[in-house]
Amino acid sequence: MGEHSLNKKQGITSLRIKRILITIVLILISIMCLFWFVLLFVNTTRSNGELGRGFTLIPSTHLITNIKNLYEGTIPILNGMFNSFVVAGLSALLCVYFSTMTAYAVQMYTFKGKKAIITFILAIMMIPTQVTALGFINLVSALGLENNFIPLIIPSIAAPVTFFYMKQYMASNLPPSLIEAARIDGAGELKTFNLIALPLMKPAIAVQAIFTFVASWNNYFVPSLILHDDTKKTLPVLIAQLRSADWLKFDMGQVYAMISFSIFPVIIVYLILSKNIVGGTTAGGVKE
C-alpha cells in the first residue's frame, strides 16, 4: 500500500467526519426552526388547566374542544378565515393575471416609450406601502370604501415585483414566433393572450399566485387601518385584537388554537408545494 492511497483514505475519513458534523449542525438549525411550531401544535391540543401546569412536548386530547370553544367564543374566527381567504384568493388571482398581461405588453409588442415604462416600473418597485398609507386611507374614506375588501384586493393588479418575475419567465419560455403563428391563424390579440400565452405561463403563475396569496394572507398593516367591523376583519387584525384584549382572562387553549388557524394553513400548502416555492425565490429575486 503506497503512502498516496493512505493519504487518500485519511482524506475520505476526515471528509466523512466533516459531513457528519455538518449534518448535526443542520439538524440543530432545523430544530430551531421547527420547535416553535411543534410547541404551538402541542399547546393547541392542551386544555387551559393543563397549559397552566407546565411545559411538555407530548400532545394532549383537547384539540377538538379548543377548536369548538374558539368557534363558539367571542372572536369571529370563521368570519376571519373566510375574509382572509376571499381577500388573499382574489388578490392572488388578479395579481397574476394582470401582471402576466403587463409583462406580455412589454415583451411581445414594440411601441414608443417601452423602455421608459420598464424603468418606471422598476423605480416604483421600492416604494414601501407604509409610506403611502396616509394618502391611501384618505382615498379609501373619500370613496366610502372603509370596511370593504376592494381597497385590499384591487391594488394587487399593479404589482411590480410579480411583473418582473413574469417578464423574466416570459423572455425564456414564450417564443414570439408562437404568438405570430396564432395571429396568422386569425386569433384576436386578447384571445391569443388568454388562450396561448396564459397556459404556457402556468408554472410561473402558480409560483407567483402562492407568493401573493401568502403575502396577502399575512398582511396586517393596511387591513388594520381600514377594517373596523368585527365581521369584516381578516385573521391578522383579529390576532392583534386578541393581543390587545386582556389576554390573561382568556382560555389559553383557545389563544393557541387561534394562532394555529393563522399559521398552519400556510404551512400545509407550503409543504405540499415547497419544491416550486424554494426554487421560485431565487428565480425572481436576484436576476436583474
Partner: peptide, 27 residues
C-alpha cells in the same frame, strides 16, 4: 398589433395611478 401593447398596460397604470400615485401625492 402594437397598439395592443398600450391597451394591455392600461390595467396596471390605472390601478397604479388610483391606489399608489394619488395616495403618494396626497401624503
Amino acid at each position: 398589433y402594437n397598439r395592443w401593447g398600450y391597451i394591455f398596460l392600461i390595467p396596471f397604470f390605472v390601478v397604479f395611478l388610483i391606489f399608489q400615485l394619488i395616495p403618494l401625492v396626497n401624503t
